[in-house]
Computed example of a mutant assay.
Amino acid sequence: MEDIKWLEVTLDTTREELDGLCARLTANGVTGFAIEDEEDFKSFLEQNHQYWDYVDDELLERMKGVCRVKFYVTDDADGKKQLAAWTAGIDQPYTAAPLGDNDWAHSWQKYYQPMAVGEKLYIVPEWMREDPVPAGKTPLYLNPGLTFGTGSHASTQLCLMGLEEYTVPGKPVLDLGCGSGILSIAALSLGASHAAAVDIDPKAVDVAYENAAFNGIGRDRYRVLAGNVLDDGDLVADLAKEKYALVLANIVADVIIPLSATAGAFMDEGAVFLCSGIIDTRADEVAAALEKNGLHVFKRREQKGWVSLAARR
């Protein structure tokens, strides 16, 4: 069956006119639209600054001065008739750019190919699982379209390389800030007995379980929770009932620093705390926090301006 073709309709406006424009579109029958607004974007960044060290300059530039509304109609006679009805009485000019349904939903897949990481791991998109895996490699199957955490970012690769070295076969692993589950699932694939994982985003729970299932890992070996170990004492107490041979945190410096005061509660004797997501200019600050909280840094890896640190109590 031929793919449906779409038009992406964009109306530029101002903050002062935004509410009125949205109200008119709704009155005209538009059932769903997206708003892109620089001020909302800045507010979002400010309210969530603890989750990143910096924001890409190109993204900031792209959002500068932006206030616009987008919606979609099919690129055919019916869609153009619908477009005319939806924009009736609206003075703002608009653009309508062709957007194929296949491009919209699936074209990103061509940019995601199997990737070797470290000495052992081989990350494979789930839709390519039938392709042969190089001899001696441990496959890790993921659906990167589900959420963040595909293995392509330098900070994740640094953590995966550390995993190869510090995963203890037959011993448990804890993944703090698990995202897609890539790190804890990799540890299980490398022989960890079982794993617990936690993320502040509730959506990560289902995503991690789905990616685990792609790798033949069931809930008998994998437990994923939603919550924040920095402010949820009950969650910390629950996780600390077990001691782990490896504790992972691929987050950002502003979370790892306070987390370093709690990490020891999860660690078994001789366990490793492996943290990444640290921009190089803050690595010394993170290392100092680890040392202050009784975690001795014994390994530092760097890649493309990012740093991972491995520490023991």
Rank of each mutant, 00 (worst) to 15 (best):
H106L: 12
H106F: 15
S107W: 14
W108I: 00
W108E: 10
W108Q: 11
Y111A: 10
Y111E: 13
Y112W: 14
Y112P: 07
Q113M: 10
P114R: 06
P114T: 01
M115C: 03
M115E: 04
A116Q: 14
A116Y: 07
A116G: 15
A116W: 05
V117Y: 09
V117P: 08
G118V: 00
K120R: 14
L121Q: 12
L121M: 14
Y122A: 00
Y122Q: 08
Y122K: 01
I123V: 15
I123P: 03
I123M: 11
I123A: 09
I123D: 05
V124C: 08
V124P: 04
P125G: 11
P125R: 11
E126D: 14
W127S: 07
W127A: 06
M128L: 14
M128C: 11
M128T: 10
R129P: 02
R129Y: 01
D131V: 00
D131R: 15
P132K: 12
V133G: 08
V133L: 00
V133K: 09
P134H: 01
P134D: 00
P134L: 00
A135Q: 15
G136L: 00
G136C: 06
G136T: 09
G136A: 03
G136Q: 13
K137F: 02
K137V: 01
K137C: 01
T138V: 15
T138I: 15
P139W: 12
P139C: 11
P139V: 12
L140W: 10
L140F: 10
Y141C: 04
Y141A: 00
Y141K: 03
P144F: 02
G145T: 11
L146S: 01
T147D: 11
F148P: 04
F148I: 10
F148D: 05
G149Q: 05
G149Y: 10
G149M: 03
G149C: 06
T150N: 13
S152E: 14
S152D: 13
H153I: 08
A154N: 03
A154L: 06
A154Y: 10
A154K: 13
S155Q: 03
T156Y: 07
Q157C: 05
L158M: 08
L158N: 02
L158K: 08
C159A: 15
L160E: 06
G162Q: 06
L163N: 10
E164W: 02
E164N: 09
E164Y: 05
E164V: 07
E164K: 00
E164M: 06
Y166A: 11
Y166M: 12
Y166D: 01
Y166G: 02
Y166I: 13
T167Q: 07
T167W: 05
V168S: 10
V168P: 07
P169C: 06
G170E: 03
G170Q: 00
G170C: 07
G170F: 11
K171Y: 07
K171A: 15
K171M: 13
P172V: 00
P172S: 06
V173D: 06
L174E: 04
L174Y: 07
L174V: 11
D175W: 12
D175Q: 11
D175Y: 10
L176G: 09
G177C: 03
G177F: 08
C178N: 13
C178I: 03
C178H: 05
C178T: 15
G179A: 02
G179W: 02
G179M: 02
G181C: 02
I182P: 04
L183M: 13
S184I: 09
S184G: 15
I185L: 05
I185T: 09
I185C: 06
A186G: 14
A186W: 09
A186P: 04
